[in-house]
Amino acid sequence: MKKNVLKIALASVIVLTTVAFTANSLEKKEINVKDSEVSWRGEKVTGFHTGTVELNKGHFIVEDGQLKGGEFVMDMSSIKVTDLEGENKAKLEGHLKSDDFFGVQTYPQAKLVITSAAKKNDGTYGVVADLTIKEDTHPVTFDLEWNENSASTALTIDRSKFNVRYGSGSFFDDLGDKTIYDNFELEVDLKF
């Protein structure tokens, strides 16, 4: 009798566990990289520059309609400058891709992995993520605007944390008007 009760109890636990795990709908929302855009803005003492970088791939993890995670890979060799033309544009793009900045031959990708997301209100999540640039990984936080088929955010990155120190007043003295600020801005518009 005890064995039968134990078997029934064990079977009930297995069934309930199975139902609990299958009741949650875990979904991977792939990013449409062709329709998505990542733009950047970097400032220096004498002005600023703007540009874009392309996504290689990306996805969000959604469980029961709530954002839970995600991973995004950027193609650092795709860095473009949008505020210059001709020789100046090509020169700056080459410099940004060089070892002075992002060293794209050695570090062709940057990656952002969402480690947690908490709903703040309808359509907005507070996100904590790990950002890897040049094999250095540091946490970043930002608000993500979430819609049915899109998501967007603006975030500030301190490049000096990722060993991108060229022209940084934090590491070099007497740069004067050649100083490039450590923080750069990203505007991200994702379609899925």
Rank of each mutant, 00 (worst) to 15 (best):
M1V: 02
K3F: 06
N4S: 09
V5C: 11
V13I: 10
T17N: 05
T17Q: 04
A20R: 13
F21Q: 05
N24S: 10
N24D: 03
S25T: 14
S25L: 11
L26W: 14
E27M: 08
K29T: 07
K29D: 01
I31S: 00
V33Y: 00
K34R: 10
D35H: 12
E37Y: 08
E37Q: 13
V38M: 02
S39W: 12
K44A: 04
V45M: 11
T46W: 08
G47V: 12
H49W: 10
T52D: 00
T52N: 05
L55C: 02
L55Y: 00
G58Q: 00
H59P: 11
V62R: 01
E63V: 00
E63P: 01
D64C: 09
K68F: 10
G69K: 04
G70Q: 00
E71W: 06
F72Y: 03
D75E: 02
D75W: 01
D75V: 00
D75Y: 03
S77H: 10
S78C: 03
I79N: 01
I79C: 01
K80R: 13
V81D: 00
G86E: 05
E87Q: 15
A90W: 10
L96V: 08
L96N: 03
S98D: 04
S98K: 13
D99N: 12
D100W: 15
D100G: 02
V104L: 03
Q105S: 06
Y107N: 01
Q109C: 07
A110Y: 09
A110G: 05
T115N: 07
S116F: 08
A118E: 07
A118W: 06
N121M: 14
D122F: 08
D122R: 14
G126E: 10
V127N: 04
V127M: 07
A129I: 13
A129H: 07
D130Y: 06
D130M: 10
T132H: 09
T132A: 04
K134A: 05
E135C: 08
E135Q: 14
T137H: 11
P139M: 07
P139G: 09
T141V: 12
L144K: 05
L144F: 12
W146P: 15
N149Y: 11
A151T: 10
R159D: 09
S160E: 15
Y166R: 09
S170P: 02
D174S: 11
D177A: 12
T179E: 13
I180R: 11
Y181P: 13
D182I: 06
D182G: 04
N183C: 06
E185H: 10
E185F: 14
L186D: 03
E187V: 13
D189Y: 15
D189Q: 14
L190Y: 03
K191L: 03
F192H: 04
